[in-house]
Design a protein around this nucleic acid. Structure first.
Lengths: 214, 214
DNA sequence: GTCTATAAACCGATAGAC
DNA sequence: GTCTATCGGTTTATAGAC
């Protein structure tokens, strides 16, 4: 930390993360990374050991970059018990924050895309860390949220509800291109993201109500 | 067809499809494909022209392999107008057929995974064909199904409902590894798939009801 | 800490024998 | 239609000069 500026190192992580997210691990060469980062290829071995270690580093970087945990934060300030009307505003806020990442300029969407890709390509190392530090906590938080409304919800039902919510949101990231094609758009615009967040919320609340009345 | 046994060719398509689905285009070498197919590397150039053309061929093969269109088939035999109770059985059947692909041995799950990967990795060619012949028709069918229950549904709402349904199902394929890890299972078993199909149906019907009463 | 030069392995493609 | 042998290019990684 004392004798390293960390400038090149950070530039490499940033460039690598973006390239890995868009082209995948195998589709990204260390030369492309170095070029994008304005650094030398040898710097990758020097700073990280190799391409695989750099990949791991980019994943950890995204996982630990405190982008905020919308669900957790809502849980902390919400009432211990919620009605269907009370939970709607919370879920909508969460959905909006998730969807905001898809189009935000300051926090580029490749981060969440990198995580999704890592979960998809189970081969390449460090999936363990992504699951335990990102996926599992998010699912657990969503399950807790569901139980604020329906306390007697079984583990299985709460989990299915959480998967259903995450699945709907994730869909817009991992099949982005087909969705945009069908929409006839070049990129997600704010209007569509708002409507999508609104619908996902409606769906989640309605599903919760259906689970309660079973 | 007359002077080719088609044995090697078919074996190559099958082996390539499975490898592309699991490791991606860049992560799969023609040597690995040839070995898995029990053929020679040169056979790939001979039969298809090159690796890229073989990839295209595997995609077209999956798209055109008439695995059945559950939604379309239900639409054809269902009443022109459906109540919420009437649609539930149909949606459940559709969901079950989708989920059955995740664990079936005879119709291997890598086919749908290959399609999803192609939609995710928008770079590699022939995405157009996958969208137009698989994604768009499925979405259109789902939208038509929604309108059997809520005829006055707007395009936007019908589409969001379709995306929501597809998203939930796709989630279990796309993030298979993390989901299995959280479930503490090695692979999807019939019991879980049944419960998941049941929940997705409940969620879809409840969402439809919510859209109708808005 | 940065760079050039290069090693060693692998890649896709194919010429040419059978 | 199948195979071996090989070409030319690219990959990751690193030794060694600065």
């Amino acid at each position: 930390m004392a004798d390293e500026r960390g400038d090149t190192k950070q530039a490499l992580i940033l460039a690598a993360g973006e390239l890995f997210a868009e082209r995948g691990f195998e589709g990204t060469s260390i030369r492309a990374i170095a070029e994008k980062a304005g650094a030398n290829v040898a710097a990758i071995s020097y700073h990280f050991g190799g391409k695989g270690d750099l990949y791991t580093r980019t994943l950890l970087d995204v996982v630990h970059s405190d982008t905020g945990r919308p669900v957790r934060e809502f849980l902390e300030r919400a009432e211990p018990q919620l009605g269907l009307e009370g939970v709607r505003g919370g879920v909508l806020g969460i959905a909006r924050r998730f969807f905001a990442r898809l189009a935000s300029a300051e926090r580029p969407p490749w981060r969440v895309r990198l995580l999704l890709r890592a979960m998809f390509e189970s081969e390449q190392g460090r999936l363990e860390e992504v699951i335990e530090e990102s996926f599992r906590p998010d699912i657990a938080d969503l399950m807790a949220l569901a139980r604020r409304v329906v306390p007697e919800l079984s583990d299985r039902d709460a989990m299915l509800w959480a998967f259903g919510f995450m699945g709907q949101v994730a869909f817009y990231i991992f099949v982005r291109e087909p969705v945009l094609r069908v929409l006839g758009k070049e990129r997600y615009d704010q209007e569509f993201l708002d409507e999508a967040a609104e619908y996902v919320t409606t769906s989640a609340v309605a599903s919760l109500a259906a689970l309660r009345s079973e």
